[in-house]
Design a protein around this nucleic acid. Structure first.
Lengths: 332, 332
DNA sequence: CTGAAAGCGCTTACAG
DNA sequence: CTGAAAGCGCTTACAG
C-alpha cells in the first residue's frame, strides 16, 4: 500500500495477492476459506483500517442496512423526551446489528419524505414512533408492503407493533387510588387521535367499572391543550373531583399551575397523579405520583422486532410488561 | 409493463424503446435530450410511479445523498426539545434538496457509530448538534476530513459552525436588568464543557464589566445539576443576589421550586430570568423573562452550509442574528 | 439528439 | 480452499 490509503476491496486483494472474492469472504465470514488466509486478510484490513464501501454492499445485496424512523414533525411537540429516548433505543439495537437509522420527520398530510425513502429504496424497513388514527404514513407503509413496526398499538392486523402496558398500568394506578377511598375522579387527557391516550383512558374507565363506579359518572375530558386546561381544571373542581388524573406529564404540568392559582392544596384538597412521566414532573413540588415506562427499552424492542422481520426470523407484536408505579406526595 | 411494477431504469427503457442513457438523462435533467423524448419518458415514469434506485445512483456518483446528524446520546438529556427542533430544521432543508438524514447518537467516548457511518461511506457530510470541548466526535471528523458543520461555536479554525447570537443576547439581557438598578446578580450555569454555556457566561460577564460591576464580584456558579441546585440557590441568596440568571430553562426550572420552598417571592424579593427557553418555562408561574432562539432555523442554517460545502459552493460559519428577549413577570 | 459500453465497489453462483 | 466473471441499478465519457 506504500502508505497510501486503502480504498477498495480490490486494493486489498492486489496487495495480498489474492482475489476480491477471498477478501470479501474473509470480511463477511461467509463461504469456505482457510483459517490462515482469513487471518492474513483480516490482519491486513485491521492494520490499514480498511472498511468496505457500504453502498456497494447495499447494491449487491439489494438491501440498504438502513432503518427508517418516523418521528413527529411538529415544531412544538409535547413528548420530545419520549421520542428522543425511543430513538436512542432504536439506534442502539440497530448499530449492534450494523444497521443505521434514517430519520424522517412526519409531515402530517405531506408524506413526501417517507415516500421518498421507501420508493428510492433507501431503507429496508420502517419504525413509526407514534401511532395515530388514520395516519397517512401508516397507509403508505401498508400500501408499499414494506416491513414496519409501530410503536404503540394499532388496529391493523397485519401491522406489527410494540407497546407499553398502558391500559393495565393505568387501570392499576386508578384502582389503587380508588382503593384509598376516592370516589370522584377526573381524567384530563391529551389528543384522542393518539392511540396511547385512548389506551390510558380505557385503563381508567376499566378500573372505575371494576370498582362499581360507572365510567359515565366520572369526569373525562380529552383533547386538552394549554388553551383548554384552565376550563378543564375548573370543571373538575366544580364536579367535586377528589383526584385529578392526567394522561401524561405535559397535561399534568399544565394543570398544576392552574390548581396553584386557584389556591387548591395538593394533596389536602385534591390529589393529583399522572399516567406518564418522563422528566417534566421531576422537580415539581409537591412531587407527583405517576407511572414510569422505559422508552429506551421500547425503542430497543421495536428495533429488535423489525430486525426479526428483515432477517427472516419470527416476529411478533409485543407489549412490554414492565412499568413502575411511583407513589409520591401528590396522592398522600 | 403489463400491469407489472416498473423496477428499474432498464424496464422503462425497454418499454419505451429507448436506451437506459436516455431514461437516465430525462430523470436527471443533465445532458441534451429532445424536449419530446424527455416528455415521453417523464410521462411514463409519472404514470407508472417509477423511482430510480437511490443506492445504485449513490454508487455511480460516489455520493450517498445522506447527511449524518450527531445527536447527544445520553438517556436523560436536558435539551431534547432543542435537538428535536434542530433536527426538524436539518431534515426540512435536507429533504428539499433530496438528501436524507442519518441519525447517530453520540456515544461519548465510544465513537463507534460515527466512525462506522463515515468509514463505510454512508454519509457525504456530518452535522454535530452540540458543540463540546475535546469532543471525540469532532476529532474523528477532523481526522477523516469529512465535510462537517458544528451547531454551536468551536475554536477549530477549519471547522464550519452555525450558532445563535448567544453571547450578545445574554449580554443585552443582563445589561437591561442592570439598567433597571440591579447591582448584585447571580448566574447559575449548566455544564461548562458545552460551549453554549460558556458563551452565555461570557455575555453575562461582559455586561457586568461594561456597567462597572466587576465580574469577579458577581456570583457565577457553573456545572449545576439537580443535585447542586439547592446549594447554589442558597448561596446566591446569602450573597444578597437581587436577580438570579440561569443559562437555560432546565436550570431555571430547577431553581424555581427551590426559591418557592424557601418562601422567596418572585419578583418582589428576587428577580429571575433565563438565557434560554424552549418549553420548560412555558407554563410556570410567575412567567419567566427569557431569551428565545429559533432552533429550527438553526438546524436549517447548519444544513444549508453543509450543502454549500458538498455542492462546491462557498460556505461560511454563521451566527444567526435573530433572537427575542421576552420580558415577563419574573423581572417586573 | 441518442446509444453502447465501461465503471462505481461490492457479492456470490459456478467452476476448478 | 480459491478465483474469474456476472450481476446489483444507476451515470457519463465517448462515439456517432
Amino acid at each position: 500500500m506504500n502508505g497510501k490509503q486503502v480504498y477498495t476491496i480490490e486494493d486489498v486483494a492486489r496487495a495480498l495477492g489474492v482475489s476480491k472474492t477471498t477478501v470479501s469472504r474473509a470480511i463477511s465470514g461467509k463461504g469456505r476459506l482457510s483459517a490462515e488466509t482469513r487471518r492474513r486478510v483480516l490482519d491486513f484490513i485491521e492494520a490499514h483500517n480498511f472498511r468496505p464501501n457500504a453502498v456497494a454492499r447495499s447494491l449487491a445485496h439489494s438491501r440498504t442496512f438502513n432503518l427508517g424512523l418516523v418521528l413527529p414533525g411538529e415544531e412544538q411537540d409535547i413528548d420530545v423526551a419520549f421520542f428522543h429516548a425511543c430513538m436512542l433505543g432504536v439506534s442502539q439495537v440497530a448499530s449492534e446489528h450494523d444497521y443505521d437509522v434514517l430519520a424522517v420527520m412526519d409531515g402530517g398530510e405531506s408524506t413526501r419524505q417517507i415516500e421518498r425513502i421507501i420508493d428510492n429504496h433507501k431503507v429496508d424497513g420502517v419504525i413509526v414512533a407514534r401511532s395515530t388514527d388514520h395516519s397517512p404514513v401508516q397507509s403508505i407503509l401498508r400500501q408499499r408492503k414494506i416491513p414496519s413496526v409501530i410503536v404503540g398499538c394499532t388496529q391493523d392486523p397485519d401491522m406489527l407493533y410494540v407497546d407499553n402496558r398502558n391500559q393495565e398500568a393505568c387501570r392499576d394506578l386508578t384502582a389503587l387510588l380508588i382503593s384509598r377511598g376516592m370516589r370522584r375522579l377526573a381524567l384530563l387527557g391529551g389528543d384522542e387521535s393518539y392511540t396511547v391516550n385512548r389506551s390510558r383512558r380505557q385503563g381508567f374507565l376499566e378500573a372505575c367499572r371494576q370498582a362499581g363506579l360507572p365510567g359515565e359518572e366520572q369526569l373525562v375530558i380529552m383533547n386538552i391543550d394549554s388553551a383548554k386546561v384552565a376550563s378543564a381544571v375548573a370543571r373538575s373542581l366544580e364536579q367535586g373531583a377528589e383526584c385529578i388524573l392526567c394522561t401524561d406529564d405535559y397535561i399534568c404540568n399544565l394543570a398544576l399551575p392552574q390548581l396553584r392559582e386557584l389556591g387548591v392544596r395538593i394533596p389536602e384538597d385534591v390529589k393529583v397523579a399522572s399516567f406518564y412521566d418522563n422528566t417534566l414532573l421531576e422537580h415539581v413540588l409537591p412531587s407527583v405520583t405517576s407511572l414510569r415506562f422505559d422508552a429506551v427499552e421500547l425503542g430497543r424492542a421495536a428495533c429488535r422486532e423489525l430486525l426479526n422481520l428483515l432477517e427472516g426470523r419470527e416476529a411478533h407484536s409485543r407489549v412490554l410488561p414492565a412499568y413502575q408505579m411511583v407513589l409520591r406526595d401528590s396522592t398522600k
